[in-house]
């Protein structure tokens, strides 16, 4: 039984590391600010989620697991706030996202393809 938990925790930790690197690669590869935010949110959700779940399995039941769960909850509630504030600040500053398609029919003035990075 302990062997099973051990293997499961290693799998989770390796998955978390994988998604962390994927998010960071996306941060470098994506062409503009808005698309980079999508890449960063992969790290913020799946990377940290899988990694901390694996650490929970390593720690067993106790205060350490509870703290890890608190950290996860903190990220689940503050991550969207930061991303939303960042996106709103970008739009407010007049940064035009590069768009393949604009479905906001009420706002025709923002439909050009925007600035190149």
């Amino acid at each position: 039984m302990t062997q099973v938990i051990e293997i499961a925790s290693w799998v989770l930790i390796l998955l978390g590391s994988f998604f962390t690197i994927v998010g960071a690669v996306g941060l470098v590869r994506m062409p503009d600010v808005f698309t980079r935010m999508h890449a960063a949110s992969v790290t913020d959700t799946l990377g940290i989620g899988f990694l901390f779940l694996g650490l929970c399995l390593q720690a067993g039941i106790g205060l350490v697991t509870l703290k890890l769960v608190f950290l996860l909850a903190l990220f689940f509630f503050t991550g969207p706030v930061v991303t939303h504030a960042l996106a709103q600040a970008c739009l407010h500053e007049g940064l035009k996202p590069m768009l393949a398609e604009d479905r906001r029919n009420a706002r025709p003035e923002a439909s050009d393809d925007g600035r190149q990075p």
């Binding site: 941060l27 600010v33 960063a40 960042l86 970008c90």
Partner: peptide, 11 residues
């Protein structure tokens, strides 16, 4: 832009 740097700093 400065927002790229803020995003990277947050990451």
């Amino acid at each position: 832009t400065v927002f790229d740097r803020v995003l990277a700093g947050n990451s």
